[in-house]
Amino acid sequence: MAEAEPIRSGRRVLVIDDASLVRLYYRQLLEDDGFVVEEALNGLEALEALLVGPFDLLIVDVNMPRMDGLTFLRTLRRLTSAAAAIPALVTSTEAAAQDREAARAAGANFYLVKPLEPEVLTLHARLMCGVPA
């Protein structure tokens, strides 16, 4: 039996991660699930991307060069534009409670520990974008 077609939500996701293979992995999974994906290599690139296009979800790594994910989120949440309210899913290799709390304090809406299984990523992306799971 053929696999069901994904719901083409057209929701736009900005993946912010300095690891090229992580970006590629998330892109493949999310595009297969009907999302439109853009990429940024660090927080500074993400802020530039937000000037250009609207996004429904940000997937944010913590440790990145030039601007880390938490500094990016603190900067984002201080903006007066609509971008400040975009939900952010932080993905990190750090699993300690203090790391989760630091992300929440910076403006993360959800925190997942890497590596992510495919269905975990797509389920959270759907939930955070209001797409039926």
């Binding site: 913590v62 990145m64 060069p65 880390d68």
Partner: peptide
């Protein structure tokens, strides 16, 4: 524990 310090240190070390 500060991600900004870790990132800055990595950039400087590179």
């Amino acid at each position: 524990p500060d991600a900004g310090l870790r990132g800055g240190a990595l950039d400087a070390l590179a």
